[in-house]
Design a protein around this nucleic acid. Structure first.
Lengths: 122, 122
DNA sequence: ACGATCCATAACCATACGGTTATCTAACTC
DNA sequence: GAGTTAGATAACCGTATGGTTATGGATCGT
């Protein structure tokens, strides 16, 4: 799987609240399928499907403990997703830069400028 | 739209290589629909659909310049996605911590330990 | 006023997704 | 060996997604 396909799978896996909650749970430590499904008003096969999506995305791995299949979070794909987002960080930090500059201006002028950052639907 | 639904929309929007490429282009500056579609072997309506997905996710906004509809990247949802990922940063950084520790051990023992970090399909 | 340009919308299609119920398998327990 | 427990798998269903072609609408140029 190339980098683009991995990002596809990772972001798609994260685009579901149940799966994000499962990852949040697994961040606290390994858990079985039953434990992972318990918080959700959802059938067991539905949970298994979510786990398969997470596994195919490389976000979890599964061990074996008798009948149980403990799940373990694998953070590497999250690191890749983070690296992708990283390239856009300046775009959202610029917002705060603007805010800082605006605050400076307000402090200097002692009169709230009310300049709403331009843009936004013309 | 609540935080979870926004994350759903954001991650889903990012789970497509065409849309990520469009965002990459827009990070360099605003562009029209035609300009955005030019690199892709895809019909114009397909591009419009991708742009609508990005717009619904709040990742772009659109202005107007005569017949043209210039698109502008909006990074705020990316910041939210980043904030979500941030909570898992220690999980993938731990990997490097382990590697560092392993390297320390190797250096101390002068004999490559070959301990493959345990876990992984039992 | 007329055609060209830029883009959106509608209708359609195949496939994927998120859920269900029912059933099957593997391993433990007694 | 019989029943029980933990999950996986199969078949199905409604809706969403990603693409297409065809058409429509707004604005520019002449």
């Amino acid at each position: 799987m190339n980098a683009a396909a991995r990002l596809d799978a990772t972001f798609a896996a994260l685009a579901d609240p149940t799966r994000r909650a499962i990852l949040a749970r697994l961040a606290l430590g390994d858990a079985t399928v039953g434990e992972l499904g318990e918080p959700f008003a959802m059938s067991q096969p539905a949970i298994s499907k979510h786990l398969r999506v997470l596994e195919l995305a490389g976000l979890i791995s599964r061990g074996r403990d008798a009948q149980r299949r403990p799940c373990h979070i694998e953070a590497a794909p999250l690191a890749e997703a983070n690296a992708w987002l990283e390239r856009y960080r300046r775009l959202w930090e610029a917002r705060f830069d603007d805010l800082d500059r605006l605050l400076e201006e307000m402090k200097a002028a002692e009169k709230p400028a009310r300049k709403p950052r331009a843009r936004r639907k013309s």
